Amino acid sequence: MNIEQIVFYFLSAVVLVSALLVVAMKNLVRSIFLFFLTLFSMAGLFVFALADFVAITQVVVYVGGVLVLMIFAFLLSNRDILNNPDAVKINGKFLTAHHLPGLVVSFLFFTALMFAFSQFQVDELEWIAASEGNTLSPSDNTIELLGINIMTRYLLPFETISVLLMLALIGAAHLARKERKI
């Protein structure tokens, strides 16, 4: 086993463990910082996949933008939780009436994903087939190819992601604002 494999397996383990801890933690501040670790490790995995631009975008947009907004929104809106985190009561029950819509949507999404994976056949995908014309080397200019594809072939998903990031910004601003007493 060489050093690249060791680093890859280490980053993969960090992503999996920290992502599971983000979901399992009851302390929101620790979950946000573990999410920070998850995003950084994902950027490292993108570097191993020769997706240098995606790795840099991951760090700049998600770690530098969305995650920092989440931290500021939390710190500005919940001073009582920071002073006394044990004072917040979290209901330990998993199946309650207000969890039902989220569970139903999660189950439907999981079912659709499993159906898609069962229909998925790697051998028939043209863009995955390794030939001399579509393999990447570390010296290729992936940023130019990515820019051409984003502005032509993948314009709709690119705009959808930009709207999602704008909604994250609006949500963070809404969480950070103070309620006025009437």
Results as ranks from 00 to 15, higher is better:
13 A>H: 11
120 F>C: 06
67 L>V: 04
56 I>W: 03
115 F>I: 15
111 T>G: 10
103 L>N: 14
60 V>H: 13
46 F>M: 10
33 F>C: 04
45 L>Y: 00
19 A>M: 02
5 Q>M: 12
139 S>I: 14
168 A>D: 03
83 N>I: 08
103 L>T: 14
107 F>K: 11
167 L>D: 14
10 F>G: 13
101 P>C: 00
65 G>C: 05
104 V>T: 07
98 H>P: 10
68 V>Q: 01
57 T>G: 15
173 A>V: 11
77 S>A: 06
159 E>S: 13
128 I>H: 09
174 H>D: 15
134 N>L: 02
69 L>M: 06
18 S>Q: 03
111 T>D: 15
145 L>C: 13
64 G>P: 00
2 N>F: 07
158 F>D: 03
54 V>M: 09
166 M>F: 13
131 S>Q: 12
100 L>T: 10
180 R>E: 15
21 L>G: 00
1 M>V: 12
140 D>W: 03
78 N>G: 03
3 I>S: 08
156 L>G: 11
167 L>T: 09
156 L>K: 13
47 V>F: 05
89 K>T: 10
90 I>N: 01
108 L>V: 10
74 F>L: 05
127 W>S: 14
45 L>G: 00
130 A>W: 06
111 T>I: 13
180 R>H: 14
62 Y>W: 03
120 F>L: 08
44 G>Q: 04
29 V>P: 01
105 V>T: 14
11 L>F: 09
169 L>G: 08
